[in-house]
Structures are given as structure tokens and as C-alpha cells.
Design a binder for these strands. Structure first.
Length: 425
RNA sequence: GUGAUCGUAGCUCAGUUGGUUAGAGCGCCUGUCUGUGGCACAGGAGGUCGCGGGUUCAAAUCCCGUCGGUCACCCCA
């Protein structure tokens, strides 16, 4: 890459979405939107930046807020942040607009985290997500998880593992955290050195440490399910029952601790088994029964998930699923006279609903037909001196070697083309 | 933030122990084809070898720095 002093490139951890990939992105986005809509979820778009306070509620001590957030003062010195995740903003919108519950919404767009990029991790990344706010019914948990499952299946993923857990309410969490800390402190010296400092700050994080020494200690640690009260246990039981009823395979993973502080009760994660990289969580979410209140709203339960588009597509790549859709150009107009016919016919075809394109700069017929071929078009319309004199168009079928080249009166091109493409029948 | 690794044409890469005008394949353009794509052949365009400094008679090749890519830790989508 020749980079002169006056050239620029995308900032670290960001990338351009170019035509060779963009059709696929549009396709996943559409797949997600229609699946969400099918379950009664409607689109919500929130700003890409908000008052920092909106996001700091997701956990002051978390890395997402503490060290990865793009924070800045606007020109009037208001503290702002580029959104690092979706849930907090949706909850802020809920508090601001007070819609009727259950409020079932979905979102998609770019999110920002100041991190070192890595496989499946970017500074600007893209997520789909849904949130269902206002109901405590465990069947909503099931509906949300099922929707995530449906999306993964719809893009053709097979090697996906669903992990679920329950964290109970905030009291459960507190009591568990307490007991876990005590346990870990007793075994402090057996832990991997790099994990010891977390015992004080984030005992829950120690649970999913990858270091072998820590893992063997953690194997004997108390589990959260022993701390769930009767209501939490019943809620979780109903969720598991629902997943079984819908034939969605899952594994209960009591050590599944998600990184954001707001989670209560059901938490879950879909991991791609086909992904070799360290970041194999393609979708993660859970219940957040205290977050709305944190943001100044009435006590309101909610649940949702976020799904990383980059990771989803990475997983599709490794399973060879969800290929890039093929080009959409149907007709190529080849004009070897002065280009007026290409100009006029391309326009005529387009306003008649046909995907049409053409060459510019007066290229040779050979070159124009080559472009037609590469575009993936079915049909080339050819205009030369002869066609001009006779007011006709030559029609060449590019994908059928048997087909004869046709000559039709110019004023019948549109209907002829539509017929050949099978648009009218 | 820490560590490892890489950085030569649009893309994938070759460039021997530092030595004349830096190469290949693919892609792109033109021609063989006097109005017709996919194949073949021929030709062409395109690089201050990421950037800056140093060592040397001489650096893509050695040294230092810097920027960027990739991967891992951490954390998470």
C-alpha cells in the first residue's frame, strides 16, 4: 500500500464496506429485520452518540465503560460518548417516551469501542439486537432466545452452541459474589498470578478465565444456582422448559457471566463452534430487571440480545454458508454508435423496473460485451449502425449458447426484454 | 494497555550471502477478431519495496524509530 504523506486510510479497527461484500451485508440485515418483524418487533433507531451518563449505567467498573468508551465534550462542553452497545440507549428511549408495554423493538447499526482490533473485534463494529421491555414473563425470555436461534439458523449456521444461565436478582448476585470472593481468597495463591487482582475487583470474571491454574480452582467454586431463590428458580425452570418445547438445544452453564453489570436472571450466549478465533460469541444477551430504574424510569423488567454482524459473517464463512448474493444487473446496453441509444435505452429499461447498465467512453463492441458478461447480465442489447438505420435492437442472450440472436423493432424492446427475463407471464 | 508476527504493483506473493534500468501470477486496458463475451496468444498501463533516520562506495535486503495490518492476552458482539 503506497501511502504518501497526503493520503489517508481508515482509522485503526475500522473498515470500508465495499461492493464485493456489501450485498451480503444488506442481505443479513434484511434477514434479521424480517425475522424480528415476524415476531412483533419493530425498528428503533437511536443516536450514535448520547450523554455519557446513559452508558455509564451499564457498569462503572466494566471495561466497556471504564476504558473502551469513545468519550468527548461537544462544542458546548456536554459530556458525550459514542454508543458502545445497544441496550442502554433503548432503555433511555423507553424512559423518555414511555411506550405501552411490552415494548418489543429491534435495532441495527454501528457501535464503538476503543480496543485493540483482533479477529472478530473492531473499533467500529455492527450489531443487530432486540429488546423486549415491560414483562417479567419467562416465556418472553424464550421468545427472545428463539428469535436469536432463528436468525442463526436462517443464515445457515449449524455449529452453534447455546449456553444459558440464571443470575437471579441483584440480591442473589450480591450474595453469590460474596461467597465466591471468600472462596477465591482462600485459594488465592493457587490462582494464576494474572487473575489474582480480579478477585477483589470482579470475582465473577475469574470464573471464565482461560488460564489452567485458575480453571482448576474454579472447578471447585460455589455455583450460582445454589443461591437462587424460589422465584428465580421457577423462572429459570420455565425458560428451560420453553426451550425444550421449542426444540432449541442448550447447555446450562452456571459459570456463564456476562460482562455487563446489568444482567439479572436469564443470561445466554450463542457461540460458534466453527470459529477458531478467540472471539466466538456471535450473540449474547439476558435479562436486565434493574436497568430502566437506573436510568430514572419506573421499575421495569426487560430482556434482549446483541448479535455481532462481523462475527456472524465470520462464522458463516467458516461454515461456508450465506454466500454473497450474485450481481443484480439483468441487461447490458451495448452501443457502438455515439452512445445516445445506450443513454436512452438504459433509462427506459430502468424506469420499467429492469436492472440495466451500460459502458461509457465509447469502447469497442468487444470490450462492451466483455463488460456485459462480467456484470452477470442475462441479456445484451446491441445497437450499431445497422440497428440505427432499421430502428431495431439486436438481443443477445448471454447465458444460453443455443439461443439465436434476435432482432426486434426498437419500440418493442421493453416488452421483449421483460418477457425474456420472465417478468411478465 | 501488554506481547508475538508481518508490511515489495489493485490482489496473492518471488526477490539468493546488501551490488547494474525491482519480478511473476491473477486482475485491468489494447490487439489478433473488418459489428459480438466466456478460451488462447501477444502487447501495455501500474511500484520513490509503509514512512523517517542510520550503517555502507552501494540497502527492498543490515540497525533504530515510527505508522499500519494480523493474531493472542485482557475484555466482549
Amino acid at each position: 500500500m503506497s501511502k504518501k504523506a497526503n493520503t489517508f486510510q481508515t482509522p485503526i479497527g475500522t473498515r470500508d464496506l465495499l461492493p464485493d461484500e456489501s450485498a451480503r451485508w444488506e442481505a443479513v440485515t434484511n434477514t434479521f429485520s424480517s425475522i424480528a418483524a415476524r415476531s412483533g418487533f419493530a425498528l428503533v433507531d437511536t443516536p450514535m452518540f448520547e450523554d455519557v451518563g446513559v452508558f455509564s449505567r451499564i457498569g462503572e467498573g466494566t471495561d466497556v465503560v471504564g476504558k473502551e468508551m469513545y468519550e468527548f465534550l461537544d462544542r458546548s462542553d456536554r459530556p458525550m460518548a459514542l454508543r458502545p452497545e445497544g441496550t442502554a440507549a433503548i432503555c433511555r428511549a423507553f424512559v423518555q417516551h414511555r411506550p405501552v408495554v411490552p415494548w418489543k423493538v429491534y435495532y441495527r447499526g454501528p457501535y464503538f469501542r476503543y480496543e485493540a482490533p483482533q479477529a472478530g473485534r473492531f473499533r467500529q463494529f455492527h450489531q443487530f439486537g432486540i429488546e423486549s421491555i415491560g414483562s417479567d414473563d419467562p416465556d418472553i425470555d424464550v421468545e427472545v432466545i428463539a428469535l436469536g436461534w432463528d436468525v442463526l439458523k436462517s443464515v445457515g449456521l449449524e455449529q452453534v452452541k447455546l449456553l444459558v444461565n440464571s443470575m437471579g436478582d441483584s440480591n442473589t448476585r450480591k450474595r453469590y459474589q460474596q461467597s465466591l470472593s471468600e472462596f477465591l481468597e482462600q485459594h488465592l495463591l493457587e490462582l494464576d498470578q494474572d487473575d489474582r487482582s480480579k478477585v477483589e475487583s470482579h470475582p465473577l470474571r475469574v470464573l471464565d478465565s482461560k488460564r489452567p491454574a485458575t480453571q482448576s480452582v474454579v472447578a471447585g467454586a460455589p455455583l450460582i444456582d445454589e443461591f437462587l431463590d424460589k422465584d428465580a428458580e421457577e423462572h429459570f425452570e420455565r425458560v428451560r422448559e420453553g426451550l425444550n418445547a421449542l426444540s432449541i438445544p442448550f447447555t446450562v452453564e452456571p459459570k456463564l457471566v456476562r460482562g455487563l453489570d446489568y444482567y439479572t436472571h436469564t443470561t445466554f450466549e450463542f457461540q460458534s463452534q466453527a470459529l477458531e478465533s478467540a472471539q466466538n460469541t456471535v450473540c449474547g444477551g439476558g435479562r436486565y430487571n434493574g436497568l430502566i430504574e437506573e436510568l430514572g424510569g419506573p421499575p421495569t423488567p426487560g430482556i434482549g440480545f446483541g448479535m455481532g454482524i462481523e462475527r456472524l459473517l465470520l462464522a458463516c464463512d467458516s461454515e461456508n454458508s450465506f454466500p454473497n448474493p450474485s450481481a443484480r444487473t439483468q441487461v447490458w446496453v451495448v452501443d457502438v454508435t455515439d452512445g445516445s441509444s445506450a443513454r436512452d435505452l438504459a433509462h427506459l429499461l430502468r424506469i420499467n423496473g429492469i436492472f440495466a447498465d451500460r459502458s461509457f467512453d465509447g469502447r469497442s463492441m468487444r470490450s462492451q460485451i466483455r463488460s456485459a458478461d462480467r456484470s452477470g447480465a442475462q441479456i445484451a442489447l446491441i445497437i450499431g449502425e445497422q440497428e440505427i438505420d432499421e430502428s431495431t435492437i439486436s438481443i443477445r442472450m448471454l447465458r444460453d449458447d443455443q439461443a439465436e440472436q434476435l432482432v426486434v423493432p426498437r419500440d418493442q424492446v421493453v416488452s421483449q426484454v421483460r418477457q425474456l427475463l420472465g417478468l411478465d407471464s
